[in-house]
């Protein structure tokens, strides 16, 4: 037992981290399965909250704080509310209902398992032994707007700042395009949904 632990620690086996991840992963998978199997529409939305929240935690584990927060804000704050409104407005049965699935369950299951096998096999083949390193995050220096070098080191602040530099530097045009897309979607949603 000790030798195992020693071996694990010698390769920097992160026991608490992995246990936390395992619990989180199981929770997310179960929640996701409930989303697609539950017979109650509102429950499905609530299970979806669990998956999305779990996603945010995964982002935190991967040291992507800004994305994690955005996930919470956009998904749980906005999209879930949208879904609940959608459920209400379409007068979906609020209790249990038996006919939420069509008659393709077996086909769906086979396709899902097939996809899982193919994706699982290929990622294991390609990335099976890669360890996470956060070296890519440790950008040596970034410049602030005035051009002075800013020390970022490993601090969380610095990573978010580096992300901001990426978005408003290399990815400025895609960013603008996305904002146009959002405007378009807004208008489109209004046009589609308004009563006339």
């Amino acid at each position: 037992m000790t030798s195992l632990l020693a071996a694990a620690s010698s390769t920097s086996f992160d026991v608490p981290g992995n246990v936390a991840f395992a619990v989180l992963a199981v929770l997310m998978v179960v929640a996701a399965i409930r989303v697609v199997t539950t017979r109650n529409v509102v429950h499905a939305a609530l299970w979806l909250v669990v998956v999305l929240g779990g996603n945010a935690v995964v982002y935190l584990i991967l040291q992507a704080e800004f994305v994690a927060l955005t996930q919470l804000l956009v998904y749980i704050g906005a999209i879930i509310v949208l879904f609940l409104f959608g459920i209400m407005l379409t007068r979906a049965p609020l209790g249990r209902s038996e006919d939420l699935d069509n008659n393709q369950r077996w086909i769906g299951a086979v396709v899902g398992v097939l996809l899982l096998l193919v994706i699982g096999y290929s990622v294991t083949q390609s990335w099976g032994s890669d360890r996470l390193d956060f070296a890519a995050y440790d950008l040596p220096q970034v410049s602030d707007v005035a051009g002075t070098a800013v020390e970022v080191g490993g601090s969380g602040n610095g990573r978010t700042q580096a992300l901001a530099n990426e978005i408003f530097g290399d990815y400025l045009i895609p960013f603008e395009v996305v904002s146009v897309l959002l405007t378009g979607a807004l208008i489109g949603a209004i046009v589609l949904a308004r009563r006339d």
Partner: peptide, 12 residues
């Protein structure tokens, strides 16, 4: 998660 999502899209 992806496969579960695909299952949902097909079945729901």
């Amino acid at each position: 998660l992806f496969s579960v999502g695909v299952y949902g899209v097909i079945v729901r």
